[in-house]
Computed example of a mutant assay.
Amino acid sequence: MSATQTLVRGLRGTVVPAVATPMDPRGVVDFDALRGYAERIAAARIGGVAVWAHTGRGLHLSEPDRADVLRVWRETVDGPIVAGVGVPRSVRATTLREAWDATVGMAVQAAGLGADAVMVYPLAQFAERPEGEREAVRLHERVAEACGLPVLGFFLHGEAGGYPYPPSLIRRLLALPSAVGVKLATLDRAMACQDAIRAAEGSGKLVVTGEDRMFGPSLMWGADSALVGIAAARVGLTNAVLDAWTAGDHTAFVRASGRLDRFAEATFTAPIEGYVQRMLWAAVWEGLLPESAAHDPYGPRLPESERTTVIRCLESLSQEKD
């Protein structure tokens, strides 16, 4: 069995938290807080973790910080580590070739640090180019060739700088021997999510939901595993929904899905980039992070009233069982 097939089998039916990166207001990573956070996440029932993802502000981290972040998780987590790879903010890519090179370089770095797979951030430029689909496939091939790891395609909504993959591209990506699957983060586009899942049917690869605001429905449409920002703070809440659906316990699924929806409504709302800060506030309330390390200097500044909304939601949920 190949490494790709082994990873597909191991991750199917599991939750992979898109973990946060503890920082101070200046963007300095708090590695003491990170280690404690990693230990708490690793103690939960997870399929693995996703580092350098959007929730962890992976493209904003310096190269040394990225390396140290992944080392902490590799030392702490026994399961698979999926590393997001793309164009770091520190790289001023002026051509598509430079963007490719930066993405490949990040994947090679991840492999050298012990990652088990890479998740390729989509290049938004592909959507505007006549040969965009062919170029997107070639980028994934080149990443796999360079780093030697299984590759997860990342359908990311445009508000986060992504490229909404058409079904034809998803089919082409999943036909690659190195492809583990596709991760869907369409935000609120139900038709796009459904079309992507239909395109993946019969591939034997993972259909990974990253649909925090459509989590339950995405499972009903055919997603079979999860890589979500909500699990950066609420692993148990996320597991409850996936477990109930997998077990065919529809009564438990409806209840668990409703609870997750309430939390998603409080955290994944406009401005959507504020979800990272909201998730950090939730992690503080959960006891996963200290207050001093719960800052997102790369997102919008949010009023205190938004924190109050998040905390009130968590307090309400705490009165119930996951």
Rank of each mutant, 00 (worst) to 15 (best):
E63M: 10
E63H: 12
P64G: 07
D68P: 06
V69F: 07
R71C: 04
R71S: 06
V72N: 10
W73Y: 06
V77Q: 11
V77R: 10
V77M: 12
G79F: 06
G79K: 06
I81F: 04
A83H: 10
G84P: 00
G84Y: 02
G84C: 11
G86F: 13
G86V: 04
G86Y: 13
G86M: 05
R89F: 10
V91S: 11
R92N: 08
A93K: 02
L96P: 00
E98T: 09
W100H: 13
D101Y: 06
D101P: 09
D101T: 14
A102H: 08
A102P: 00
T103V: 07
V104R: 11
M106K: 06
M106L: 14
M106C: 13
V108K: 04
V108T: 13
A110G: 04
A110P: 13
A111V: 10
G112P: 00
L113A: 01
L113H: 03
L113V: 01
D116N: 08
A117Y: 07
V118C: 05
V118K: 04
M119A: 12
M119S: 11
V120Y: 06
Y121Q: 10
P122V: 02
P122W: 02
L123G: 03
A124P: 00
Q125W: 15
F126T: 01
A127M: 14
A127G: 10
A127H: 10
P130L: 01
P130I: 01
P130G: 01
E131R: 12
E133F: 12
R134A: 15
E135F: 08
E135S: 12
E135A: 12
A136H: 00
A136S: 11
R138C: 09
H140S: 07
R142N: 11
R142Q: 15
V143M: 04
V143I: 04
V143N: 00
V143C: 04
A144D: 01
A144Y: 10
E145Y: 06
E145A: 14
C147A: 09
C147E: 10
G148Q: 02
G148R: 07
L149D: 07
P150Y: 04
V151C: 05
G153S: 15
G153N: 09
G153M: 05
H157P: 08
H157V: 15
G158R: 15
E159Y: 11
A160N: 11
A160V: 15
A160Q: 13
G162S: 07
G162K: 07
Y163W: 15
P164D: 14
L169I: 02
I170C: 12
I170N: 03
R172M: 14
L173P: 01
L173V: 02
L174G: 00
A175F: 06
L176Q: 04
S178E: 14
S178G: 03
S178Y: 12
A179E: 01
A179P: 03
A179V: 02
V182N: 00
K183H: 07
K183F: 03
K183Q: 06
L184R: 02
A185P: 02
T186L: 07
T186G: 11
T186A: 15
L187T: 13
L187M: 14
D188Y: 12
D188G: 10
D188E: 14
D188Q: 13
R189L: 11
R189P: 08
R189T: 10
A190W: 12
